[in-house]
């Protein structure tokens, strides 16, 4: 029993040194991870900015004012008169059909 206790007591400094080494390695790894996290954050911000720019470009290109300018340049003109194809019979106007 005494021998066991002695051997444990002798191994304590070794365990302490081992734990210190593990702590150092682990902390060092985490510090490195902090840098990685920062670079990932920067990448996210960069992608978000690019998305914003793209959304703005899409909105600008699909704006009615832009489309109407392009349409004019390409020779499109507003129709003088609309043409409709009628399907089915005309219904009685609601204002007339309602009982007074």
């Amino acid at each position: 029993m005494m021998n066991l206790l002695r051997s444990i007591a002798k191994s304590i400094p070794l365990v302490v040194v081992l734990l210190i080494v593990i702590e150092l390695v682990w902390s060092n790894t985490l510090v490195g991870s902090g840098r990685d996290v920062r670079s990932i954050d920067l990448a996210i911000a960069q992608l978000r900015q690019e998305n914003e720019v793209l959304a703005q470009q899409v909105a600008s290109a699909s704006a009615l004012t832009t489309i109407s300018v392009h349409a004019k340049e390409m020779g499109f003109v507003a129709p003088a008169k609309s043409q409709f194809v009628m399907i089915g019979g005309a219904e009685l106007p609601v204002a007339i059909a309602r009982p007074q």
Binding site: S27, L30, V31, S33, G34, R35, V37, R38
Partner: peptide, 10 residues
């Protein structure tokens, strides 16, 4: 943060 300004996760 560390001396270089990077975040310390611990």
């Amino acid at each position: 943060k560390d001396v270089q300004g990077s975040a310390i996760l611990v």
